[in-house]
Design a protein around this nucleic acid. Structure first.
Lengths: 350, 350
DNA sequence: GTACAAATGATTGACGTACATCAGAAGCTT
DNA sequence: AAGCTTCTGATGTACGTCAATCATTTGTAC
């Protein structure tokens, strides 16, 4: 049989109450006694039964996920993954509420965070750009001892406890190497397309991409970044103009998603399938584009893992548990047609 | 507050005992009453607290992992991952014992499986080739209602409940596409190196690789598979001879791991870094080879995830729980230098 | 040696579910 | 309506841990 707290008490020659005090780091135990108890624990190989512990605590974990209300494919996918993870987490007495804020309105975001703080939620997963207002809001949450994890987008200069996502610069470097190797040794020109360069991720990706291109692929010329601001018209215009004025354009690096509009333009220009296209984030659109050969590779992160990881980390933080760093590490995934995960993995239908 | 069985009883107008009978599918309840209880359950949104349930059952899960005793880098890595996962699973009343059998001795394997069956373990994760003896042994286990999951290597024609691993053929296809694209459009020759073609994985990978090469990269000629049988001398001999007699050799596809010996030979032949090398499985060796540019890409699976997934699935099978297919799906990962996960992820040091 | 604080013991009632037992009610057959 | 089976209710114990209470011992300072 597996040892219990009673066995520890007997082995250490102390009472159950003392063992409990040691286990839960409560005050009022001599250092010497603590040692004795810990010795007994390691001698018997005791491991605390988390199920029973949580039951006894009868603790419910009310977690909050806070996201911008942007209507992108990626956010859609992420949202589905979070809902799915939340449904499963319900079995483990964890309920998840999702809050969204107007993408540009940091004050609205701060309000939401303040309310969550006042409501004493057990933890918050936050996807937001790092602005002074956000920094202050996070600081306020930390003052209330509420764990905060950064989701997708890191918040390095805040007091956030953890970052769940991938290194954008390394992701950009990865995209760069693939682009360089796919293009081969002939001189070539590559253009970078972005919806907006205001997002930290876009900047970081671009930086990583450029680094690699300069150091490893001198034969490839990386043109200026074209911003489309999410408008299909703008995109059509800039791409058409670019193609007209550029000899030797052989690749496009898509900093964000938004592949659909580009495919339409390229089709009209009779360039679809003749350029090397590399983008980010696996969504139903990019998946389809990979399947039919319109996209050559996608750099992505596993959103299912992302959602589960965020909840797990929050929970561990909430009851000062242990975090398995190896498990929570998100990988920069390279997806091509041949290793596309089966459908349903990123578009949870249930 | 979250509803409990008591709330269900009140809502359905029945007693606690009846709710319990319905929940645990015990006999002696009228169909009509069952419906009433189920209605109450869905109305209140009740979800059974698995922690409390398992505690009450006071159930311990004794799981077994059965592996060949081959001394490969991959098995080493896998073993570390399993130990790590097992240590964490201990918190959830799950203990894991690891058994190893002589790689060629299927009877020894059958013995182990029979003993585990007799010992009534809660589940078995099995990595073994599919032979008639193994098929029979698995069938015997199923007769005892012991869940069996296939690990790494699928057992499609047995009664195994689940497969935790990746599709080797798709992995081979992925390697093929990368090889083809990295080599570019010039005619080229590629050789395939294997320790042995007896393993199902090797055959499947080779098959996927060839498929892709033939259909997508006609300019690349894939030479015959060279078997090294794990001997560094044989490897040196066949590779040296090959290089001498082959014009235009530009790539090597390593079906297994065993990159170290190859690197030595290539260095002597002054070919290190001048060929495109693609291999399988991320281990300390292949990691290092990627870092220094000796390997161009590695196709792998996340062994940490593999180990955790196997234990989760076994547990879910053991108490007829739900399996989250999306979570248990292992991905075919492409690793290059730029997206190498941080160390420690595949070499758990603890 | 008394006074007081600190450390420890002893005991108890949760937490949500499983499972067993026994008594009683409802439904059926004849 | 009696006798029977099939359902249902009521009740209690257990699982391993948490958390609180109160009693008691030990240690320390004067």
């Amino acid at each position: 049989m597996r040892p219990t707290v009673n066995d520890i008490a007997r082995e250490a020659g102390v009472s159950l109450a003392t063992v409990d005090r040691v286990l839960n780091a409560r005050p009022g135990v001599r250092a010497q006694t603590i040692t004795a108890v810990n010795d007994a624990i390691s001698k018997l190989g005791y491991v605390r039964d988390m199920a029973a512990a949580n039951l006894a605590r009868s603790r419910n974990y009310r977690m909050a996920v806070v996201l911008p209300d942007t209507e992108s494919q990626f956010l859609h996918t992420l949202l589905a993954a979070i809902s799915h993870a939340a449904a499963l987490a319900a079995t483990a007495r964890t309920e998840v509420e999702i809050h969204r804020f107007p993408a540009e309105d940091m004050h609205a975001l701060a309000d939401i965070l303040a309310r969550l703080g006042a409501a004493q939620v057990a933890g918050i997963a936050l996807m937001a750009p790092e602005t002074p207002i956000v920094r202050d809001a996070v600081r306020a949450l930390k003052a209330l001892h509420i764990p905060v994890v950064a989701l997708v987008s890191d918040l390095p200069n805040t007091e956030a406890d953890h970052f769940v996502g991938i290194d954008s610069r390394a992701a950009g470097r990865t995209a760069g190497v693939l682009m360089g190797r796919f293009l081969g040794e002939k001189p070539a020109k590559v253009v970078v397309l972005a919806q907006s360069m205001l997002l930290r991720e876009s900047i970081e990706r671009r930086r990583g991409f450029d680094e690699v291109m300069q150091s490893d692929f001198p034969q490839v010329e990386v043109l200026q970044t074209l911003e489309t601001h999410g408008s299909a018209d703008t995109l059509r215009q800039v791409v058409t103009e670019l193609v007209r004025n550029t000899d030797g354009l052989r690749g496009i690096y898509l900093l964000g998603s938004g592949h659909r509009a580009l495919a339409a333009v390229l089709r009209d220009l009779r360039l679809l399938g003749r350029l090397t296209l590399i983008g980010h984030e696996l969504t139903p659109h990019t998946r389809r584009a990979l399947e039919v050969g319109q996209l050559d590779a996608v750099i992505t992160q596993n959103v299912g893992h992302l959602a589960r990881s965020a909840l797990r980390v929050l929970r561990a933080k909430a009851d000062r548990g242990v975090i398995d760093e190896a498990q929570e590490q998100l990988r920069i995934e390279i997806v091509i047609r041949e290793n596309l995960p089966p459908d349903g993995d990123d578009a949870h239908s249930f």
